[in-house]
Nucleic acid binder design. Structure first.
Lengths: 327, 327
DNA sequence: TTGTAAGCGTTATCAT
DNA sequence: ATGATAACGCTTACAA
């Protein structure tokens, strides 16, 4: 296969009567070039439609300006908000984000990790999947530490057991407390909590917080009102069906994220149970919260702060490396 | 800044007592290598944690396996569904998708286009923004055609005037007809249509279809029921306010996409107008359609088919190029 | 202020 | 079946 030859700095050099080095200098905004030759070179570039080749550049500079980002599912509004905000920050700093959906599938995660390594990303942001497993598989741990030898991995809202890397998390405990106190203020004393999943790291502490906060307010705990489920709409529906089987019903329902609450609403509608039977609180501040009827009160996870913390941590890590490696 | 040296095929070659060429051969699965040396090399790779450098590879092969994807906003469920599906297909074919949000901002689009050029993506999928403008700016056209000289751009559901590139689109005319017929079947005769934007390519034909289909069914057109608005929730709210000002109200509301309908619902709720006052139809088959109360009937845009068509077109283009360039 | 040339980590052509 | 070696397109000492 014969490929049309790219315009290179050599071509530009020739047509501008300078050396390739000089062309490269204007490319890198090196101030040493005389303004007139600089303009000349720039003109030739425009004429010929020259675009620098990022692969070549990365190869010599040993730096790709790439950040890898693995998350379960970008169609989940919480993730998309976080991602967009992070992409915006990255753009400001001159970085390009590589997004990959894992669908919480360990094998897909592995594929993405490998690809990120080969593309020499300078950092990996990891959300969901294996980093939330209380008991990750040996293979998963090995993969992670292998990759981490090359490139820092920032785990968001998760911590793999037996793996110490970088972490960023939202204040989940604080969020749960805030949600419960909000409901108490509304006069609720019967509060259900749907949608954590056993075997996921943060689960235990969140459920513990739920119970502790209730106790602190002299409210007795009804075990049947704390129901595990998947993090999605289907999970919310299933949990609702379980909840409805209990002899006594709560007056308020907390969902582990908004999707779970949507599931609740959907199930209630399908069973012709009035939505107003309960009050609802979700945990992600996603744009839908505004839409569903009745409006959800959600505790603001604040993806902006989250994204910013991820970026800050990345820059700290990078700076640390640079300092360590100064000649 | 001193960087820890990467393990290269030279290192592997040395430790395996072969030449770098041989190492490269096992990397490319060249069948000419003896099985025993092949295993030897593979072992050494594992031991040393070797990962091939994609930049170097791209440089020599003049091929990056990268596809750029520009869309307005990945937090819009329609786009995220399309993207996920496309990413899945791309992964199957060994391609990596570079996602960029443009926020419909022309300058951001330009940044992404430039970056895609530098990264030598092999195709660009373009949704939203400038490709929907009935009257694109000269600068935008120039940018596009400059980029198109290097790499094919596939414009999805849009067609820039004065620009002939590759196009893929959903059957919007058919969708509108289907929606209206659905409403007619339900007995509606008073049908509003909210949410197209003047100056966007597909608008005219879609509105024409709306009118034509009504006429075909002997329904007179009420101009006040056809309201332009932005494609988002706010647009839907605004259009609703306008709609409510007309002396006569429709019984059904069609929205140009689901977000517009959400906006309608929200505005009605805020004005304490019963949701059941109207029936609703949106145009994107996004996962929320299921959730909102009352359920929306949406015309299936079928993002799976759309993604597949994008991928097919890309492969056709690629194949065409290869044929043209065979030695 | 500019040029020369080595090097970045691969692949691919030619020999052997 | 394997090895030498020239690309690929850029950056960056080092010289001039």
């Amino acid at each position: 296969m014969i490929v049309k030859k790219d315009v290179t700095i050599y071509d530009i050099a020739k047509s501008a009567n300078v050396s390739p080095a000089t062309v490269s200098r204007v490319l890198t905004s090196n101030p040493l070039v005389k303004e007139s030759t600089r303009q000349m070179v720039l003109d030739k570039m425009r004429e010929s439609g020259f675009t620098p080749n990022e692969s070549a550049r990365s190869l010599t500079k040993k730096q790709t300006n790439l950040i890898g980002f693995i998350l379960p599912d970008i169609s989940n509004p919480f993730f998309s908000q976080v991602f967009i905000e992070f992409e915006r920050l990255a753009l400001e700093k001159g970085f390009t984000v590589l997004l990959r959906n894992s669908m919480d599938n360990s094998e897909i995660e592995a594929i993405h990790l490998r690809e990120f390594s080969e593309r020499r990303v300078e950092c990996i942001i990891f959300m969901g999947g294996r980093i939330n497993k209380a008991k990750p598989e040996k293979k998963e741990l090995e993969e992670m530490s292998t990759v981490m030898k090359r490139v820092p991995i920032i785990m968001v809202n998760g911590k793999m057991k037996g793996m110490n890397g970088y972490n960023v998390r939202t204040d989940e405990v604080g969020g749960i407390e805030a949600a419960i106190e909000y409901l108490l203020a509304l006069g609720h004393r019967k509060i259900a909590y749907l949608g954590e999943k056993k075997g996921v790291t943060a689960t235990d502490i969140k459920i513990a917080t739920y119970k502790k906060t209730l106790k602190k307010n002299q409210i007795s705990i009804v075990p049947k009102w704390q129901i595990y489920s998947d993090f999605n709409i289907e999970g919310g529906r299933k949990a609702t069906r379980t909840l409805l089987e209990s002899d006594q019903l709560p007056t308020a329902i907390m969902g582990m994220n908004d999707l779970v609450i949507y599931g609740v609403l959907k199930e209630l509608r399908m069973q012709n149970i009035p939505i107003r039977t309960f009050s609802y609180v979700g945990f992600d501040d996603i744009f839908l919260s505004d839409i569903v009827y009745p409006s959800l009160t959600t505790v603001n996870h604040n993806y902006q702060i989250l994204s910013m913390e991820m970026m800050n941590l990345f820059e700290m890590i990078k700076k640390g490396k640079e300092i360590k490696r100064v000649k």
